[in-house]
């Protein structure tokens, strides 16, 4: 049994320390907004924030984030008017929607670091896979979110 801090709350979990954080979030704690796509850090569906940094939770052992602050899409959505969420809705980004929580978490971390990313920054940083192919809308939403942040 050990304790994880997720979205500002403490959760006691009874799993093996090497269980990937993804499965602890989804199956133990019940936060299913974080998705499973590949299990090998290729697709980014499982992206969460660990102390504000984007991390792929499918290859992050739960035991390695004891004491860290984990934020999932559910935590981000507590602020429904978050600029990234607003931009995502205004641009109508999602198609099937499955990869979108991971995309949003990756983009939020990028914008925290770099509030005005260039297209090259986006190409380099946003490597999450969207099988529906919403990349054009994602790019537009990132620039829109960036503008919303600049407006404050």
């Amino acid at each position: 049994m050990f304790t994880l801090r997720v979205n500002g709350k403490a959760h006691n979990v009874d799993v093996e320390l090497d269980t990937p954080l993804l499965w602890v979030l989804r199956d133990t704690i019940g936060l299913t907004g974080t998705k499973y796509g590949c299990g090998v850090s290729e697709c980014g569906c499982c992206t969460v924030h660990i102390n504000g940094q984007a991390k792929r939770s499918c290859v992050t052992p739960a035991g390695s984030v004891v004491g860290a602050e984990v934020t999932t899409i559910e935590g981000l959505v507590e602020n429904r008017s978050h600029p990234v969420l607003s931009a995502w809705i205004e641009e109508g980004v999602p198609q099937c929607g499955y990869c979108q929580p991971g995309q949003i978490m990756a983009v939020t971390a990028l914008l925290n670091r770099k509030p005005k990313p260039t297209d090259a920054d986006i190409d380099r940083d946003i490597t999450n896979i969207c099988r529906c192919g919403t990349y054009a809308e994602i790019r537009k939403a990132i620039h829109r979110a960036s503008a919303l942040i600049a407006k404050g």
């Binding site: 907004g33 998705k35 499973y36 899409i73 429904r80 809705i89 999602p94 929607g97 949003i104």
Partner: peptide, 18 residues
């Protein structure tokens, strides 16, 4: 605007896996 866009953006849409 699609009716389900917010559900999907917020990670609240229930997929089979969820």
């Amino acid at each position: 605007q699609p009716l389900d866009i917010e559900l999907k953006a917020f990670g609240q849409a229930t997929f089979g896996i969820d």
